[in-house]
Computed example of a mutant assay.
Amino acid sequence: MLSAAAAISAWSGAAQAAGTTAGTSIANTASVTYTVGGSTQTAQSNTATFLVDRKVNLTVTEVGGTATSTAIGATDQVTTFQVTNLTNAVQDFILTPDQQSVSLPMLGTDNFDVTNMRVFVDSNGNGTYDAGVDTATFIDELAADASVTVFIVANIPNTAGADVAIVSLVAQAAAGGQSGTQGAALVATSLLTADSPTTVDIVFADSAGSLNDPARDGKGRAFDSYKIATAAISMTKTATVVSDPLNLGVNPKAIPGAVIEYCLTVTNAGPGTGTGVILADAVPAGTTYISNSLNVGAPGIAGACTLAGSTEDDDTSGADESDPYGGSFDGTTVRANISSLGVNAPVAAAFRVTVN
Rank of each mutant, 00 (worst) to 15 (best):
D113Q: 15
T354C: 09
D330Y: 02
T189K: 08
D323I: 07
N247L: 14
D323H: 06
A4E: 13
D323W: 03
A4V: 14
V355D: 00
G309A: 09
K55V: 02
G65D: 09
G19W: 01
T68A: 09
I72G: 09
G23Q: 08
L191M: 08
A208I: 12
N251D: 11
V164I: 15
D314R: 10
S243H: 02
P284A: 05
L58N: 11
A175G: 04
A304F: 07
Y34V: 00
V242F: 03
F120N: 05
T238K: 02
V187Q: 14
A185D: 02
A48S: 13
T236L: 01
T273M: 04
T47S: 11
A258L: 06
L142G: 01
D76K: 14
G23W: 06
A10F: 07
D113T: 15
A6P: 02
T316W: 04
V347P: 01
V150H: 06
G37V: 05
G180H: 06
Y226F: 15
Y34M: 01
P346Q: 04
N268H: 11
A5W: 02
V355P: 04
L307Y: 07
T24Y: 11
L211T: 12
S225N: 05
A229S: 09
A67L: 00
D320K: 05
S310M: 09
G276N: 15
L248K: 15
T238I: 13
S190G: 15
T354V: 14
T149S: 11
A222R: 03
L2R: 14
F329N: 06
V83W: 03
S101N: 14
A349S: 13
S123Y: 07
D323L: 05
G64T: 12
T20L: 14
Q16K: 13
G180E: 04
D320E: 09
S210V: 15
L246N: 13
G73M: 02
T33A: 12
V150S: 07
L2T: 08
I278L: 10
R221S: 01
